[in-house]
Amino acid sequence: MTTFRRVAGKLGALLLTLFLASVLVFFSRFLVPGDPISFLLRGRKPSPEAVAQVTAQYGLDLPPWQQYLNWLAGILHGDFGRSLQFRQDVSVVIGERLPVTLGLVIMAGTMIAVVGLIAGAIAALNRGRVLDRAVLVGLTVLGAIPSFVGSIVLIAVFAVQLGWFPSFGSGEGFWDTVYHLVLPSIALAIVFVVLIGKVTRSSMVDQLGREHVEVATSRGLTRGTIIRRHVFRNAIGPILTVSGLLVAGLLVASSIVEAAFGLAGIGSLLVQSVDRLDFPVVQAIVLLIVSAFVVVNAIIDILEPWIDPRSAAGAGAR
């Protein structure tokens, strides 16, 4: 199969998944019994004009599939509707808050990658020894510390007790922002380190036991060369797959951390919008997170043949 056809196929699958996800996000509203106006305007005392305006804006008098197409067409033009709580376009509200979340996710992602890879590699290269056990125990404990627990512990120790880091807000300017995001990103990273750490370890242990590593040893290559060229290189595939799956988890968990540290990101916006019954914003953020996840994983999928040449031939990874 040619590269072009393969990539085209993957892109087709990507679009299909995105389409189905958008259908789910849109039509979820129809799961709620009762009339859509009172759902959208829950908790508010709408004037007749407001009802008329919302009805017109969402085309609530149209058949559902027509509503969906209008909504989809709007999104493709960057129009996610209007926020009920801010009386602003959803795209503007989200746009203001996206940078904080991205900063948080990037910092946390970097920490996860660095700590996870190092811990996993150390454990794998010492498999069966005390150091391996210690790393595994450490990872298991870290993996049991959810973001909200991490947040309050970090706030208690480093913000309140020691006063080293701020516990609230995202700061001004680049370095101040980074400074403000240190504790939040650690809190976000903790629980995910275990995933990268363990997949790195098991993937490398798997490769270390393979015969091609023994062959490389028999040819007089140094241990360092073998680990770099044959063990780690071959272990990348599963690590990358797990990393792709992390993306969605990170984005969602950022809502917890943002809430705990008072950061104005899309995570805390999501929670706030659920709390204030601002459904258009909820819909938009959900769709955004889901799309980010699907796209990142599609990219990893498309890159696969460069990671493992067998996958292109459909020979199956072994």
Partner: peptide
């Protein structure tokens, strides 16, 4: 010793040659 005195051929070449690297890489590596 491994570099000059002895070479070894293993049973299963499918398992013994790194599947993610080319034949050329395998041969020229050392």
């Amino acid at each position: 010793l491994r570099r000059s005195s002895a070479g070894m051929v293993f049973q299963d070449p499918r398992a013994g040659i790194n599947p993610v690297r080319t034949i050329g890489d395998h041969l020229t590596e050392t």
